[in-house]
């Protein structure tokens, strides 16, 4: 499974998307450092969310089309771990690079330095949740021919808590407050997502395969 993902060239695409859109932002709202700094946490987080979601469409697609998803579902082992592994790979390919890249983008958007560490940690934890939650949407829409917008519609409301606590943590860090509570909640969300989301996604895969 790792092998299959390793060979794909489109791993770089979400990352490039993330950087490009963030580079467009100053062109849209103007280069005032204060304004950018104010918007930076939110914008970085929203872009991370979009980048994760856009790349999620193909999470199970290839496996569905060539029949390997069907073979996975036929294994006596539960599908839970396969989904968990898939989500993990997806996160390593998108969320992790985004988190690693975030200080650079924060620099470009003039984010106060107090927020750097928190931004990194919140993205690190948050994007993992996003990958897991998005897997449910990807599994539900895998049998559809053009799932793009539908996937967004399904997954976006579920992303809301992660977004709120992610930006909340960064904002608190910039304002000089303690932000460990928000990060703890993000970690809790991640734990809940890791436990429940693959379960739902595995069920969704079985439903989608029955087509």
């Amino acid at each position: 499974m790792l092998l299959a993902l390793r060979k794909r060239a489109d791993i770089a695409n979400p990352l490039l998307f993330f950087v490009t859109v963030l580079a467009l932002l100053p062109l849209g709202v103007g280069p005032e450092p204060d304004l950018l700094a104010k918007m930076a946490p939110g914008m970085i987080w929203v872009m991370a969310l979009l980048a994760t979601m856009l790349s999620q469409e193909s999470l199970f697609r290839g496996d569905f089309e060539d029949g390997t998803l069907e073979q996975l579902a036929l294994l006596p082992q539960p599908l839970y771990f396969a989904v968990l592994a898939k989500s993990l790979v997806h996160w390593i390919a998108t969320g992790l690079p985004l988190a690693l890249l975030s200080p650079l983008l924060a620099l470009m958007l003039n984010l106060p330095t107090e927020g750097y560490f928190c931004l990194f940690v919140s993205l690190f934890l948050g994007t993992a949740s996003l990958s897991l939650i998005g897997a449910i949407g990807a599994a539900l829409t895998v049998a559809l021919r053009r799932p793009g917008l539908l996937l967004a519609l399904i997954v976006m409301p579920l992303y809301v808590p992660v977004l709120i606590f992610g930006t909340g943590a960064v904002q608190a860090a910039i304002d000089g407050y303690a932000y460990s509570a928000q990060l703890a909640i993000l970690a809790a969300l991640l734990a809940a997502a890791a436990a429940l989301a693959p379960l739902a996604a595995a069920g969704a895969i079985r439903i989608s395969l029955d087509n």
């Binding site: 092998l3 299959a4 060979k7 794909r8 290839g62 496996d63 089309e65 060539d66 029949g67 390997t68 069907e70 073979q71 036929l74 294994l75 006596p76």
Partner: peptide, 28 residues
Amino acid sequence: RAMREALLYIGHRGGVRGGLTPLENLTW
């Protein structure tokens, strides 16, 4: 469950990954 442990199923979609070589597919 017991049945699936003894099952070899090859469907319309062969379960062959295009991004892998035949050898890698079989080892998978």
